[in-house]
Each structure stands twice: as C-alpha cells, then as structure tokens.
Amino acid sequence: MAVTAKAFQLWRQEIAPTDSVSDLCRSAGIKRSTLAQQLVRGKVSVSTLLAVARGYGLDPVCALAQFEGYTDLLTGMRAPTSAELLSQVSHRDILKLLVARGEGIGNGLSDLDPFPHRNSVRAWVEAIDPGDLRQQLSERSGIARQNLSAQLSAGRLSPGLAIEASRIAGVSLTSGLVVTGLLTCAEGGWPVTGRADALNALSDTDLVLLARDRLDALGKQLRKADADENRDRAIWDNLG
C-alpha cells in the first residue's frame, strides 16, 4: 500500500522545507524519474519513502508511521518470535548446524547466510500463520487468493499486505517489512544475532525436524522446477 502523493509532499516540506525534488532524490539515492512518476500517479511507494527518510537521517519506521494506514506501526513493533527468526535461516545453515552437531564440532553457528533469502516471504507467512492467515488476509485486504499466492511464489509481498498479515497473526508489525527487505534488521527491531540465537537454541530433535521440513519443501520446489523445465524442453524439441 503506497502513500498518497499529497501526504508525501506535506511530509517532505516538513523534513526538508528548502530542498527541491532533485535535492531530495540525491540525498535519498533514488532516480528523479522514479519519484516524478510516482508523484504524477499520485502514489509514492513505501520503498521510496523509506529511502528519503534514510537520506535525511530519520528513523524509517517513525517516518512511515506518520502516514495513514501505518500509524500503529510504532506501537505494534515488538521483538520477532522464534518461529519468525527461524523462517529466515537458510536451509544450508540449518544443515550446517546439523552436520556440526553430528560431528561434535560445535553446538552453534554464528555466521549465517544473509537474508532475505529466496523463500523468505513464503517462509515467514507460513511461520506466523495461525491457520487461516491467507483466507483472512484476502478477506481483509480484498486481494484475490490466487494473486496472493502469485506474490508469495514470486517472493514478494506488498508492504500493506505484509503489515496486515502481521496484524492478523499478532506479531511485530515491522516483521513483514524486514523479511521483504524494505527494512534492515536494526530498523525493524530484529536483533542482529536473533536468527543465530534462535537456531542454536533448537534441540537436536527440533533441528532435525526443521531440516526435514525445509528439505521436503525444497524437494517439492525442485520437482516443480524440473517439470517446468521438461515441459519447456519438450516444446523446444518438438516445435522449435
């Protein structure tokens, strides 16, 4: 959900009364044409807004919280749950820890793969899902179920939907913005070592079960990708 150009302009005059649009873009490190286009369309994207806030040294979450639809952001910001943190650990790190524990060469990992990873968004949605998250999300936001699925498959989730999902699941409202890469860990209130701590705290059993679930999901994904590839190949071989 983008913010209105009008609200953005008012906010811009507040934070940088003397700067032109060009100055603003230079400070924020965004393209002038991008912002100009968004202003003409009457909607400024959340990522643009966050870039501008960062450019002027403002706290991105505080800045976003001044806009309609996001006003509960600050009060709804909490520490992430362990499930959320684990959802952002890559399967490779999970397997590394499993092997390390099996070989008796250490109980914990400290250097995790960066995130968001390829499945960050879907993994997060599954981690916070109380059971009918997609259903509720589509009812409340009016987005069709298959469009929601398409976004998740493509590794995307619009900021509005991400926050709405957090509201439904009762988790920190900034989590969705962190896992979609709009906010950094620090900005979104995720402790820097949070993921590693959550991973290392797992019992052996939970670690193995987590690894199984991840490999299961990965296997399904690969099988689907193989099937797609084979279909493409059949079309090339027979008609190309």
Partner: peptide, 21 residues
C-alpha cells in the same frame, strides 16, 4: 506461435540459478 518458439529455443539457455542455493 511456432516462430516465437523457434526464437525462444535459439535464445533459450537453461535456467542458471543454482537450485540448491
């Protein structure tokens, strides 16, 4: 349609992303 598929095969490469990454 057939010609489009022909072009697609000429330009097509296997998807290169490491699937296990």
């Amino acid at each position: 349609g057939l010609t489009l598929i022909w072009f697609s095969r000429r330009r097509g490469r296997p998807r290169q992303r490491n699937p296990l990454a």
